Structure formats: C-alpha cells, structure tokens
Amino acid sequence: MKNIFNKWWGTASVFVAGVAMLSSCNKELPQPTPIVPPTPSGQTITQLLAGNAKYSILRAAITRAGTALTFNPSDASAVYTVFAPDNDAFIASGIPNETVVGGLPVATVASILNAHVIPGVELKAADLSTAFPNMYLQSGLVLSSTPPIPYRMPVFPSRRTGGAWFNDIAIKATDIDASNGVIHEVSRVFFPPSQVIAQVAAANSNLTYLMAALQRADAGPPAGAPQLIPILSNAAANLTVFAPTNQAFQNLFTAMGLPTAITTINALPTQTVWGIVAFHVLGSRAFSVNLAAGNSTAASIMGVAQQINVTGGTVTVRGPGNVLPTTPATPYSATVTAPNINAINGVVHVVDAVLLPQ
C-alpha cells in the first residue's frame, strides 16, 4: 500500500468609456438631483418579536446580551437576516424559560444570538441555494478581529427538497418580513462551537486511533503534501471529516491480520497512513441534511471520490478500497453513527469503519 498515494499528488476585462464633449454656449448646466433612499416602513425586527408571545425567551436573551450584541434589531436603517429560535426551540435546546436565560453569562448569551444573525444581508427563502457546497456566509459572531485574518463564525443556510436549513437545524417558518430585514424561525438553538476539528477529535476518547493516525501521517507525508493536523487546526478552513472510531481501526487491523493495538498505526508507512486519513476529509462543510438522497459522490482532499448513500435518514460512505479479501465483489460501507458534530472550521461525522481510497 505504501506507494499508491504518490501518483495523484502533484498538482479583465478592460472597460473603456467614451467621454462626451459638452459645449455650453454660456448655458448653465443643470444641477444633479440628490438620490434620497426611501424611509423604511413597517415594523422593525424588535417590534415584530415584541408583538409575538412565542418569542419571549428570545426577547429575554436580547435584553440579557445588551451591548454585547454586534447587531441592533431596533435599527430601522440596518439590514439583517435573523434565524430566530422561538420558545419551543429554546425549550428543545435545554433553555426552558426566561429565568434560565437571565442566569447565563452575558458573553454566552451574546455569542449565541450573534451567531444567529447575518448582518448587512436580507436573505429570503428563495435566495437560499439548493446546490452543494452550501452558501458560506459570516454571522455576527466575531471569532477574531486580529489581522491578518479577521473573521466571524460562518453559517450555512440551504434549501433542499425536504425543506430549508440553518446549518443542520430545520427552518420551520420563512420570510417573516421586517422593515430592517427578514426573520426565519428555526427549530433549535445553534450553540456556536469553541473548538476546531483537531481539538474536537483530540477531546473524544473514542477517536484516539484517529489522532494517532494523524500524528503518524504528519511524520512523513508524501512529497509536496501538507501535514493534516495543521489543516484540521486552521480556524478559517471549511471541512468535513468522517471520523472512524477506535473500534473501526481495530476491525480493519483484524481484517488485515495485524495486531489491533494502537501501536500498529506506527508500524504502517507514513505515506500510506497519510493517504488513508486524507481520504476521510472533504474540502467543504457537508451537514447530513445537505447530502443528496440516494447515491452521490464527494471528492476528498486527496482527490479520490467517496461514494455516499443516504437512505431513510441513514448515511453510509465507502471508498474504492472498502472490500474484504473474503468478499471482494461486495464492498462494505461505513455508517455514520454520530452526525453533525460542529466545529469552528467544519463538521465531524463519526463512522464505524475506516474508509480506504485504494
């Protein structure tokens, strides 16, 4: 297996405007008329929320956050897209009432609310893309304002046959118009992640074999290939990782006739391990709700396509090498057992088998 990954790694319009010459003959040129934007009419986002009892917890959260918010829903001159959790959404997410909101730290409440707002954009349901990869938009939650990479928490609204989504959260009501933007009602609260993918994996005791494989791969990647842990640690990246469990690695080693101990990973060639691990990473964020029903493919960062199947809500994925010596004509698939683990720079789906690109 050690050499199979080397062969694939390698790789104004000018507008001219004519200038019209004006002869005045002592005539005074007309003065330009100022363009005055129309005054917004109707209710602001604040007024719409205030007029509906089902948003009482959200109103309490806005009050609790106060000046820590990066948006002002009362500003009639602003434009926002708000993905608004109603009371049922807060309750489903473990925040049952206004009293609980009032007991949360201000910074926590503000970060949650800021992540539900896209400032400067009025995004209607018809504007949501049905294509994949999803729309990549920045929320009002500032992750870093320090040069050279100031950035905010990205969010991924989308529309599919089964409905509209805010990340992996269902949108249950769309296009509630306000004078300063639009509200889409969501079914759960989005809790912004605080870790990148590498940290998520390192903190999961069921992914210790994967972390060992990442470290082994980075000890000697193919010529010109990047190390993987820095990629998974890049907060500005946008990735999907299908993460095999410890048992998944042990099952693979058993099928290969190797010891099931984690030390087996360090006995494999580094380039082989790099190719296997890189095959589990997609270069875009794919929540389970964004994957097409039936069969589809998605290219990994190593260039080899994964085969993905979605049937009745169950997601399976496999690679060209996912066959057993005893049944070479019947490829086996990895099943997603824990989907949509959010990270700052992507999403992790835990799977029960190791994917093999070759």
Rank of each mutant, 00 (worst) to 15 (best):
A178Q: 04
F191M: 14
Q43F: 11
I276K: 01
P357V: 09
S205F: 10
V106F: 03
T245I: 06
T311C: 05
R59Q: 15
L48F: 04
I176N: 04
G283V: 05
A305E: 14
A12E: 15
S77A: 14
W8C: 12
A203M: 05
W165S: 01
L232Y: 00
F5I: 15
I169K: 01
Y55P: 09
P147Q: 07
A84T: 03
V317P: 02
K2H: 13
V323A: 13
F83L: 03
V336Q: 02
L128G: 05
I344F: 03
N266G: 10
Y209W: 07
G303V: 08
E98T: 15
W9Q: 14
Q43H: 09
E98P: 03
H280F: 02
V142Y: 01
T240W: 05
I95W: 02
A60P: 07
P331W: 02
N238Y: 05
A20L: 13
I171L: 03
F279W: 05
N322M: 01
A292W: 00
G313C: 09
L252D: 08
V82K: 01
L252A: 07
V142F: 01
T263N: 14
V36C: 07
P34T: 09
A217S: 10
I308S: 03
A223Y: 11
P85Q: 08
A60Y: 04
I171P: 00
A17H: 12
N340C: 08
P32A: 07
L355Q: 01
A89D: 05
N180R: 01
P339Q: 08
T67C: 04
N246C: 06
S74L: 06
G163T: 06
W8G: 13
T67I: 08
G51P: 08
A248K: 07
A110P: 00
G140I: 07
A76C: 00
Q358C: 08
T44R: 04
D86Q: 07
F191L: 14
A217K: 00
F15E: 15
N238G: 09
T272K: 09
D177G: 09
G103C: 10
I35Q: 11
A53L: 12
A298G: 03
L268K: 00
P222K: 06
D177P: 02
N204I: 07
H116L: 15
T63N: 11
S56V: 06
N26S: 15
T70V: 13
A201L: 15
F253Q: 10
N266Y: 12
N72F: 02
N114S: 01
A217M: 04
V14S: 15
Y151E: 12
M256W: 14
I197V: 00
V117E: 04
F166E: 00
V14E: 14
N52R: 12
V189C: 05
G346I: 05
T263V: 12
I231E: 08
T81P: 05
M153K: 11
V281W: 04
Q199A: 11
V348W: 02
L291C: 07
V14M: 12
T245E: 05
V273L: 03
I4P: 12
T311K: 12
P325R: 07
A225S: 12
N295G: 11
S23K: 13
L355H: 01
D88H: 10
K27P: 10
